[in-house]
Design a protein around this nucleic acid. Sequence first.
DNA 1: GGTCGGGGCGCG
DNA 2: AAAGCGCGCCCCGACC
Length: 656
Amino acid sequence: MLRLSVRHGRIGVVRVAVVPGPGRAGLLCPLDDHGGRAGVPIAVDDLAAAIRERERSAPDRGHSTGGGPIAGSAIRWVWFATAALYPALARADAVVARCHDISLTEALLRTRDAAARDGARGASAAGEPGEPASDAAWQRLLDYRPGPAEPGVGYPPDTTYPPDTTYRPNTTYPPDTTYRPNSSYRPDGGPIQPALFDPDQVGTQPPADPRAALDALIEVHASQVARIAADPHPARFALLAAAESAGALAAVEMSLAGLPWRADVHDSILTGMLGARPPAALGAASRLGGPQAAARPRRLTELAAQISAALGTRQPVNPDSPGQLTRALAAAGIRVSSTRLAALREVDHPAIAPLIEYKELARLHSAFGWAWLDTWVADGRFRPEYVVGGVVSGRWASRGGGALQIPRLLRRAVVADPGWVLVVADAAQLEPRVLAALAGDRAFAAAAAAGDLYNALAGHFGGDRAKAKVAMLSAMYGGAGGEAGQLLAVLRQRFPAAAGFVEAAAQAGQEGRTVRSALGRTCPPPSARWRALTEEASDPDSERDPQAGLALRARGRFTRNFVVQASAADWALVMLARLRARLTTIPAGADGRASVPELVFFQHDEVIVHCARSLADDVAAAVSQAAADATRLVFGPTPVVFPLTTAVVECYADAK
DNA sequence: GGTCGGGGCGCG
DNA sequence: AAAGCGCGCCCCGACC
């Protein structure tokens, strides 16, 4: 980690600023160590070709981060938004090893600095939040954002929203959140930040004035380099920015490659569970019986009838409607706190079994049924769009297709191409191991040096592995119900440093402060509403609002979890970046095919590589080396191990 | 007609 | 068994 250059992330890597346009052309400008111009801008007719050529002619000659040489060039391309520019480049075979994503890095920096500004504002109530020195250049850069992309130029056509859906930002936020990197959503009237990247607005259609855009880009980049260097831990923050940017490259490449998806297998799973695919609903006629009436498959229709019969309702009850369902259950003498599966399972009544089956099948049908298949799977591939940095903790989000919520039973449909395999790697018990490394708790670290963490802890909990797990989860999530409180007390006694670490994070959150991940990703500051609510309550003259205590504890749980989840995301992101680099060093297989291993899926702590069977061992080795790289880069020397369970399978469902 | 919040549930 | 954290997206129903 110390070998990282503060200014450049890596010794020997040069930076080149990139602005697209006009047309297929573009502007390049080499940068010096401080991000200033190291030459005059170079206009190129074919940007993809120019980048491709420079990637090939500037090889990385063994500059090492300690984990061995990396294939690819020694250029770090500096551009506004990977998600906007890189799809077109990658499709034109201009695959790059490294980039610096200005928009993602700006989001990291602004979230970091929002905390300080927020604190300052607390002192002078009416004061404007202090803006970074680069703000004028940043605004200019946003002004140069191009209009909507032309067809085939911006996002690849197969990864844009399906025509019949509209994206709406999620509406359930932690009560104290004011800002998320890729969202202009303002949940509670808190300070709004500029939308850093809007896929509807940003395409690769070039800015009207590329030279002016280049000026703004270079200015913002220089400011980012300086602001990274000013971080209390500049090397870590530089690594975070580099990993976030590498993740953005990987995300685009994964969307282009797609996850192998057998539509025929998926269809037979649906048919087996739901009955044959119902004919398409026919416009207005079908709506007379409700939008779903014509489209409800046979099995769901049967179950709905059984539910109504068992409840003895005069009118058919729609099990999709919590309101109708609650009333019908009440009429049958059943009172439930909600119509969730968990609550229903407590009830003993003939209507419950078909109702539970209905809810499970209806979920499959509506979220991952035939309509999903039609919309999201083409040419044997599922191509979701990943949103790097879309979660406050640094986890990725996805847009369309529910890519990160694929039901486990549909893993049967994820099948490698003939002669190819899936290398499925899953970080085992990542979050508790991250806590062990973060807290530097020697006793806990010793337990985390073992294979199964919870088995190793079980001895401290009367030999009960399940209790050890509950204690850990409670510590990381802030749960205290049931016997969790007792188990937490045991944890606190045996592992005071680990318990103290998360409790300090919770305390910081309750006091309105922010916390940071291992690499320096910062949680959002509390919203104005949260501050008002909690400050009012702390005033002895005011009436005590029960909402205030709830909000206080909710933010404590949020920051308590943030330090663990976000540091785990740091580790996973660095692992992904290192794996991506290492995969390029694997020589082509003996079968002579152009068989480069492809990253095809990434889900928080799990990664899938699709490769020729002959390369599976090399890929598996790259995975474990990448994990070791990540552990060293994120946590430095630590006794904690981060084992990956790696399976080489033809079908994802066989991975574990 | 469309929008939006709630309830619910899939994943980690 | 669920809970405590983080998400996306479905349907429903209130509302404009």
